[in-house]
Simulated scan of single mutants.
Amino acid sequence: MNPYEAVRLVELDLRQLVRTVLGSSWLEIARAGGVVDVANLKEKAAVERGRRPAAVVSSDLLDYTDFTQLQNLILKKQWETFAPALGTKRHIETYLSKIAGFRNPTMHARPLLPFEEHLVLGISGEIRNRIAIYRNTKEQSSMYYPVVDLITDNFGNTHDGITNSIIKTGVRLEIGETVTFTCRATDPEDRELHWKLSNNAHGGLDPQIDEATGNEVTLSYTFARADVGERVPLLIHMRSNGEFHRQPGSQGTDVSAMFHYAVNPPRQGK
């Protein structure tokens, strides 16, 4: 992992932590505390929709907060609420201050010195691991299983690891078109994570299965004539290489997410 990825993942994980700790009340808390300007966040979302007309962009205003706003919400307005997840305030203040200081250089491709790179990677790893452990306990899973941070298709449809794992995308595709998923997860014991994507309508006999291993992977599926229909369920499974899993069985699965698509019949003569 490079420093750019480390900083980006910390920011994403902090947003996931806010969702876990505060839920839908985060916006009112942040607004009342003067952390965010709701009108400004809505404007950012509108600008994003305008710039990406071919994508389903996020409607969650939390995704449009910046790193400083996340810092202020966690450290200045709601520390007692976040302390069980992050530990000692003095340490986290120092860590987030360091990350903030390195954020601009890494986001603009300015190189860091070797010791700075190691510092960023170490801080990122510790913060993300704390968050993963806390999310496991809050989401009523034991501390032995990995958690999904985000699964996103190339149209912008997402599973955030918290809400419903069945996503009805509303996307219509043609035979031969491909959908691509970016998948990211964290394991509290830093185990190897294996991902698999297939069409669940084929009853486990799907000849087109994409697989990958890692904390952040890309999976893809190309729709065929056999997939034509109004509800094509693409299923993503993730499991660690540990002995035990959330969903036991011969294969063993820790996380599942399903994305539904519609595949159009070919036009006459094709």
Rank of each mutant, 00 (worst) to 15 (best):
P3Q: 07
L62W: 02
G204E: 10
G269Y: 08
T213H: 07
Q16H: 09
E43Q: 11
P265G: 06
Y95S: 02
S165T: 07
H237S: 09
Y261N: 10
T65P: 02
T218E: 14
R31Y: 00
A85N: 08
E216P: 07
N154R: 11
T180Q: 13
L205F: 15
L75S: 05
S97R: 14
E80G: 03
L14S: 02
A39P: 04
G23W: 03
A132W: 11
G34Y: 06
G23A: 00
F259N: 04
V232H: 13
F223H: 02
A54P: 00
V35A: 07
S141K: 12
A100I: 05
D210Y: 04
G34R: 06
G122D: 07
I74F: 10
D149P: 02
L9R: 05
N215C: 08
T88P: 07
I236H: 11
H194L: 15
D254E: 04
L22V: 03
N129T: 14
T68C: 01
V18H: 03
H108E: 04
K76M: 12
L219V: 09
T169H: 13
E117L: 08
T218A: 12
K42Q: 08
N40P: 00
H91T: 09
S165L: 05
P146A: 12
S142M: 13
D206M: 07
T178S: 12
I123S: 03
I74Y: 04
K98A: 13
R49V: 01
S25T: 01
A226I: 13
V217M: 03
L41K: 04
P3C: 00
E230L: 14
S25Y: 03
N241H: 14
R246N: 12
G249A: 06
P53R: 10
